[in-house]
């Protein structure tokens, strides 16, 4: 050891030579800190100790508003259902909606798959436009038919009814066996 002592580095500096200055805290930084702390105290006090609304209360206010909007908007959209479903423009539009949202359960051509055949004379929930519209809107959740009221606009709902009505008697290949009651209108 004693021979190569001159190779040995003496560590006189502190912190491996790192120097620390001691500048004062930046004012804007202190201000930011103080503001966030003061704000937080008031925020917690208002919402958790005083009478600020709870999240549940905020939600029910908002939901009441939305339900009112929904009620107001129902209006007259479905007044002319029986005439509307005969119009070609609705049938065409309905075809598009069906190809996006319904085919996976009712088959590409309405022949039935998970859901029933929509091209025959047999209906589980009735064959009038009103009946069909109702099933589409409310669904049959326990049987796996999805409610579409929240998803489809009123116009789209009418259009799918129109399209389904137009399927009658198309006799697509590989139909699903008949379900429900036969209607001979």
């Amino acid at each position: 050891m004693s021979d190569d002592k001159k190779d040995i580095k003496k560590l006189e500096e502190h912190f491996d030579g790192i120097i620390e200055h001691d500048h004062p805290l930046p004012n804007w930084w202190v201000a930011t800190f103080v503001i966030t702390v003061v704000f937080s105290i008031f925020y917690y006090g208002y919402y958790e100790l005083l009478d600020g609304p709870t999240l549940d209360q905020e939600l029910s206010v908002k939901m009441a508003e939305i339900e009112q909007q929904q009620k107001d908007s129902v209006g007259k959209a479905f007044d002319n259902l029986d005439q509307d479903v005969l119009k070609q423009e609705f049938i065409d539009k309905g075809k598009v909606v069906f190809a996006e949202k319904c085919f996976m359960c009712h088959g590409q051509q309405g022949q039935g798959l998970i859901g029933p055949n929509l091209t025959d004379n047999f209906w589980i929930h009735g064959n009038t436009s009103q009946n069909i519209l109702h099933v589409i809107q409310k669904g049959v959740p326990e049987k796996g038919m999805v409610p579409w009221e929240a998803v489809l606009s009123a116009e789209e709902q009418i259009a799918t009814v129109a399209f389904i009505k137009s399927l009658k008697g198309t006799n697509p290949p590989t139909p699903k066996a008949a379900e429900g009651t036969e209607y001979k209108d």
Partner: peptide, 16 residues
Amino acid sequence: YFMPKIADRPVYSYRL
């Protein structure tokens, strides 16, 4: 550790 080493500069503020 590495910032002052790499830049070979003093740290800005001890009290910070």
